[in-house]
Design a protein around this nucleic acid. Structure first.
Length: 657
DNA sequence: GCACCAGCTAGTCCAGACTC
DNA sequence: GAGTCTGGACTAGCTGGTGC
């Protein structure tokens, strides 16, 4: 349990009919005190659980076996049978009583935790230290009467109100949409929900050459031979895709991970600029792209690198952690010459790290990796759009702006998406300057299509809950329409037809195949549009991806506007097809690509604002207008008044992916 | 009628675990 | 490297109860 807002403490306890265990104070050793599988095994399972079960068995009497239930916390190790907790339980002959995910009401211990929290809230003198909190929780645990616990187990609240949980799931009819074929180079492949590059390793269009390869090691590596091997493999791999690399500049920057974010960001900015200037002096041309190899996985360093590369220098960048380097080198077969590799395709790209890096490198150099082989279902001359908003979260200035991002394509079939972004009022989900961003996107589309505007816009809005559908319809849709009117020189009626869908991933609807004893995920392409849908809403669930672990979550798509007059079937198939155009991986995404890209763009925007989120700039910025945030040197842009923060060099690139 | 509080819901971000 | 799922912590906003 965790008592939020004051002193965080963690406990383990067990209850049963006629039984209440001692309460054990436990401590997480993971990041920020997170409780890990190792902690659970060492602090709970090994020292206590057998005694608890034996004591409970004694209470139950002969012939009855205690049932042990855990919730779905990943530290309990339920996802595989080979982790340390599962292995230990198996070796001890302990079996688990099933507990449905996201169902705290199904577990009586949750009500005990709630009782303790409520009792602590009622105390006149609140604990002010961890020791006081531990003592207080133990006192409240002791006060819980066994009769009350027995009552929880006998009769749960929803039974008392006449509600019962059905023994069976609700049966719904679904349909399976076909996997679209994808095209790499000149080859068309019949795809599964995930595929690889072994049999079609040429990209659709090649990006530029990687001139002046600059490798920057951030931090100290004990094993330099490892990086040399990794780079040799990478160069060899890229040659296979006909992406030549010239130049070879390897440099190192000392990390400043423990310093405050302002000093740290300034340090990296100076160091990287020196490297850039040095390469320019020697090679007489600008570096095309930077490859950063990070000794440690550190989100703050990553944020500083991306801020410098995107906002200051305007150069594409790729970050690889030392873990990935080790993984890649360890798995890669011994390098052979290209002819041998061509003759022996099965040895190519057997390590996903090199393959994924090749994907990133090609599209960051301006290439296009693949496209759908047949028709996507998207209407002719359509601009695909994705939009999302992210908020500052805890720890930041209460007035810290939220960040809105929009991505768009220049055609309906190729997966290249470029972006616009804005700062906006704190914790505002509604996109305040959607009109301005849509105008930018339409102008870009026009510039790429011989001055023609799209006939249709297919707009996917991410991260909006059911209570906010009205906001999207009444406040965001009119902005999109206004942008269309403006770019058509005020012409009324507009000729650009808008179809707008809200995409939701965080809902509690799950689908399972009927008649299977062991639960397993349905195949990718599952579409459900009846039974569980509201009567007067044009919406559907679509599980576009194949989930290898856990219970697959379907995307929930709600149609807010349909000026392009898509039929339900066509919109479902189109949306499913659009899950296959993501450039970063060789797999169908769980939500359609424009929405996913908008989500990724917002993650990148958070990198730029990281010093504010870390609280370092609050003295300068607290409760200041958005313009002050926008113009501050070390965050959004460089204080030169740009609306989107990144360097104009990147306006035509999918640099944020 | 107003202020305050607690409880609840729904949302976000994050860490951890896992697979390809 | 990519992707996924899950639970925990935290927050905002709404609702209903209580006291003045």
């Amino acid at each position: 349990m965790h008592r939020g807002g004051t002193i965080p403490v963690h406990f383990f306890g067990a209850v049963g009919y006629g039984y209440k265990s001692p309460l054990i104070n436990i401590h997480g050793t993971g990041k920020s005190g997170a409780f890990t599988q190792t902690d659970y095994l060492a602090q709970v399972l090994k020292p206590y659980i057998q005694d608890f079960l034996a004591a409970f068995a004694a209470v139950l009497g002969p012939g009855k076996t205690p049932q042990f239930m855990e919730d779905g916390n990943s530290a309990h190790g339920h996802k595989t049978t080979s982790n340390i907790c599962a292995t230990w339980r198996t070796s001890m002959g302990i079996t688990l009583f099933p507990h449905p995910a996201v169902s705290p009401d199904m577990n009586p211990i949750e009500k005990c935790w709630r009782r303790i929290k409520q009792a602590l809230h009622r105390r006149l003198r609140q604990p002010t230290t961890e020791v006081q909190m531990v003592v207080a929780v133990l006192e409240e645990w002791d006060k819980i009467p066994q009769e009350w616990i027995n009552g929880l187990i006998e009769q749960q609240d929803f039974w008392a109100f006449g509600l019962k949980v059905a023994n069976d799931f609700l049966a719904v009819k679904g349909k399976t949409l076909r996997y679209p074929d994808v095209r790499y180079g000149s080859q068309t492949q019949n795809t599964d929900p995930s595929w690889n590059l072994k049999s079609h390793p040429k990209f659709l269009t090649k990006g530029g050459d990687w001139q002046n390869l600059v490798v920057v090691e951030v931090g100290s590596f004990t094993e330099h031979g490892l990086i040399r091997t990794f780079l040799a493999h990478l160069v060899s791999e890229l040659a296979f895709y006909e992406i030549p690399i010239s130049g070879d500049f390897k440099l190192r920057v000392d990390p400043l991970v423990d310093r405050d974010s302002v000093v740290r960001r300034a340090h990296y900015s100076v160091a990287f600029q020196e490297i850039f200037d040095d390469v320019l002096r020697q090679a007489h041309t600008n570096p095309v792209m930077f490859l950063f190899i990070l000794a440690d996985k550190d989100a703050t360093v990553y944020a500083d690198i991306k801020w410098w590369a995107d906002c200051i220098r305007g150069v594409p960048s790729i970050c690889v952690t030392s873990t990935a380097v080790q993984k890649a080198v360890g798995k890669r077969p011994k390098p052979t010459d290209r002819d041998l590799r061509l003759a022996n395709n099965k040895n190519i790209l057997d390590c996903k790290v090199y393959g994924n890096l090749a994907l990133k490198i090609n599209f960051k150099l301006g290439g296009v990796n693949h496209r759908l082989a047949g028709t996507s279902g998207v209407k002719l001359n359509t601009m695909l759009v994705g939009a999302d908003v992210t908020h500052s979260g805890k720890g930041a200035d209460p007035g810290c702006p939220s960040l809105a991002g929009v991505v768009s394509s220049c055609s309906s079939s190729i997966g290249k998406f470029v972006a616009s972004a804005r700062l906006q009022s704190n914790n505002t989900e509604y996109i305040e300057d959607l009109e301005g961003m849509m105008l930018e996107r339409l102008q870009w589309y026009q510039s790429k299509n011989e001055n023609k505007l799209p006939d249709h816009i297919l707009f996917y809005r991410d991260g909006v809950s059911e209570s906010q559908y009205g906001m999207v319809r009444d406040e965001e849709l009119p902005q999109i329409q206004e942008a269309c009117r403006k770019i058509q020189a005020g012409r009324t009626p507009r000729s650009i037809q808008i179809t707008l869908l809200v995409v939701g991933k965080r809902h509690h609807t799950r689908f399972f195949p009927k008649g299977r004893e062991s639960p397993e995920n349905l195949k990718a392409g599952l579409c459900v549009e009846t039974e569980v849908m509201p009567l007067h809403q044009f919406s559907f669930y679509l599980q576009s991806h194949q989930s290898a672990l856990g219970t697959a979550r379907s995307g929930h798509y709600v149609v807010i506007e349909n000026e392009s007059r898509y039929t339900a079937t066509l919109l479902q198939e189109t949306t499913n097809n659009l899950c296959y155009i993501g450039s970063r991986a060789t797999a169908a995404l769980s939500i359609c690509t424009p929405a996913r890209y908008a989500d990724i763009l917002c993650d990148r925007l958070r990198c730029y604002m990281r010093p504010v989120f870390e609280g370092e700039l609050l003295n300068f910025l607290k409760n200041n207008p958005i313009a002050d945030y926008r113009d501050k040197n070390l965050i959004w842009g460089t204080g030169n008044g740009r609306v989107s923060p990144w360097h104009p060099n990147l306006n035509d690139r999918s640099f944020y992916l």
